[in-house]
Simulated scan of single mutants.
Amino acid sequence: MIETPRLLLRPHALEDFEPWYAMFSDRDLFRFIAVPQLSREDGWNRLLRYAGHWSLLGYGMFAVFDKASGELVGDVGLADFHRGLGERFDGFPEASWIMARSTHGRGLAAEAVAASHEWLARAHAPARTVCIINPDNAASLRLAEKFGYRPFGSSTYKGGPYTMLERLAS
């Protein structure tokens, strides 16, 4: 478990499914992300995939909780999603973040992203991490830039345009 001033981050647990699925059912939250509306079955399988990352790779996505309320407010971490975007992308830890709309504008995403990257650097020390962001998602692009991500290419993923970004270890 990681604790920040306002958040708790930990690997997902089975009891997270209902609040996690409710967050993933907010379609406005996904306007820039190529994620279809998840059925409960697909959502369950995604949660199990998150657990598999930790079991097989030793890193993965964190469930993010607001310390004050105890509510699940996001998914943040690094994973290997095997997106098929080429050798310059696949095989590197991929940063990913999504926070409930109630958190937007409060700096909580930056707090969670910082904590997950600091943890990964201590635990695994990767030389490079990557992420993909829709070029219209200005908020995520700003957040990526804040953490040292720089564009290195573009791609189409699930029918949408994406900027591929990388962050080199310092």
Score class of each variant (00 low, 15 high):
2 I>Y: 07
151 P>A: 13
6 R>W: 02
110 A>E: 08
6 R>E: 01
78 L>D: 03
100 A>I: 08
155 S>H: 12
153 G>I: 04
65 F>M: 08
132 I>T: 10
38 L>I: 06
61 M>H: 10
4 T>Q: 11
124 H>Q: 13
137 N>M: 09
19 P>R: 06
167 R>I: 06
137 N>L: 10
168 L>D: 00
31 R>M: 11
144 A>P: 03
106 R>G: 05
69 S>Y: 01
140 S>G: 02
135 P>L: 02
105 G>Y: 11
66 D>Y: 09
92 F>A: 11
24 F>A: 12
133 I>Q: 01
144 A>R: 05
109 A>D: 07
17 F>H: 13
127 A>V: 04
60 G>V: 01
126 P>C: 05
103 T>G: 03
70 G>S: 02
163 T>I: 12
138 A>C: 06
84 G>V: 01
44 W>C: 05
31 R>N: 08
119 W>Q: 07
139 A>E: 07
138 A>N: 09
167 R>E: 05
151 P>V: 02
138 A>H: 12
133 I>M: 03
54 W>V: 00
96 S>T: 09
37 Q>M: 03
92 F>P: 00
31 R>W: 06
84 G>R: 04
69 S>A: 10
148 G>H: 07
36 P>F: 02
11 P>A: 00
160 G>R: 13
103 T>D: 04
116 S>I: 10
14 L>Y: 06
104 H>R: 14
135 P>T: 03
12 H>W: 11
80 D>H: 15
6 R>D: 03
143 L>R: 00
141 L>E: 07
60 G>Q: 04
88 R>A: 15
59 Y>P: 06
99 M>H: 09
5 P>D: 13
12 H>K: 01
93 P>M: 08
115 A>L: 10
27 R>C: 05
1 M>R: 12
89 F>L: 03
124 H>C: 12
8 L>C: 14
39 S>N: 03
164 M>P: 00
92 F>D: 09
47 L>P: 01
99 M>A: 12
141 L>H: 01
32 F>C: 03
132 I>H: 14
96 S>K: 05
72 L>F: 11
131 C>H: 04
51 A>G: 12
125 A>H: 15
20 W>R: 07
30 F>M: 15
152 F>C: 07
52 G>S: 06
157 Y>K: 02
21 Y>W: 15
68 A>V: 05
